[in-house]
Design a protein around this nucleic acid. Sequence first.
DNA 1: GCCAACGTTGGC
DNA 2: GCCAACGTTGGC
Length: 156
Amino acid sequence: MSARRRYWLMKSEPDTFSIDDLERVRTEPWNGVRNYQARNFMRDGMQVGDGVLFYHSNTEVPGIVGTATVASKAYPDETQFDSKSVYFDSKSTREEPRWFLVDVAFERKFSRTITLDEMKQHAARLGEDFALIRRGNRLSVLPVSAAQWKYLLSLE
DNA sequence: GCCAACGTTGGC
DNA sequence: GCCAACGTTGGC
């Protein structure tokens, strides 16, 4: 028995890893998340098959650029053990890994970007629990309700 | 490039 | 356990 499909939004800086990069490689380990809340969403909340809104942050026009799916259960982020990686964490051990990730698989690139600006205009409809447009929210992985997912896709 | 927001670290 | 200092995120 599997629980109902859940939905998420995951941010990536397109200069580092864009939706086009994901389309090219098809599946990517979502490494480098070093925020506990974001980690908890991946480790404790995500299941294979969940829907992901792929969001481009820190770019000229930030917004949702496509969809992906969660393609694995959570497992330890290998980069935390790599002393040469920028994501290296000297306090993490293989016995007790601190950071987890999931694999994310490309699904679809939108015909256009659903911009952050546009989402703000639809704030009333998206609701107060839509974390992306709550002031000051910097989480790079955040939950999206089924209603928000449906509504955001309808904007394309 | 600036800087507000805010999570994390570390001294006490 | 408080909280100032610091570092990072990410919109603008």
